[in-house]
Amino acid sequence: MNEPMDMEAVLERLKEKGLRLTPQRVEVITLLYQLSHPTAEQVYSLMSKKFPYVSQTTVYSTLKMLKDLGIVNELTYGDRSSHFELTQEEHAHFNCKSCGEIYDVDVKDARQLQHLLHTEQGYQVDFVRLEFYGTCPACAAGGEAGTDSVRTAH
Rank of each mutant, 00 (worst) to 15 (best):
M1S: 15
M1F: 12
E3S: 10
E8A: 14
E8W: 04
E16D: 13
R20A: 15
Q24H: 14
E27P: 07
V28K: 12
V28E: 09
I29H: 15
T30V: 06
L35H: 07
L35F: 11
S36R: 10
H37L: 07
T39F: 02
A40M: 02
E41M: 08
M47A: 14
M47W: 08
S48L: 07
F51L: 11
Y53H: 07
Y53W: 05
S55F: 12
S55H: 10
S55E: 15
Q56N: 11
Q56I: 10
Q56R: 15
T57M: 10
T58Q: 15
L63R: 08
L63N: 03
L66M: 15
I71H: 09
I71S: 05
V72I: 15
N73L: 12
R80G: 02
H83I: 05
E85W: 05
L86G: 06
E90R: 01
H91T: 06
H93E: 02
N95A: 02
E101S: 06
D106V: 10
D106Y: 11
D106L: 13
V107E: 04
V107P: 00
K108F: 04
D109G: 03
A110K: 00
Q112E: 11
Q112A: 10
L117W: 03
L117K: 06
Q121F: 05
Q121A: 04
Q121C: 00
Q121H: 04
G122H: 03
Y123L: 08
Y123K: 09
V125M: 03
D126H: 10
F127N: 13
V128D: 00
Y133V: 07
A140E: 11
A141I: 01
G143R: 01
A145N: 02
A145K: 03
D148G: 06
A153K: 10
H154P: 13
H154I: 01
H154E: 09
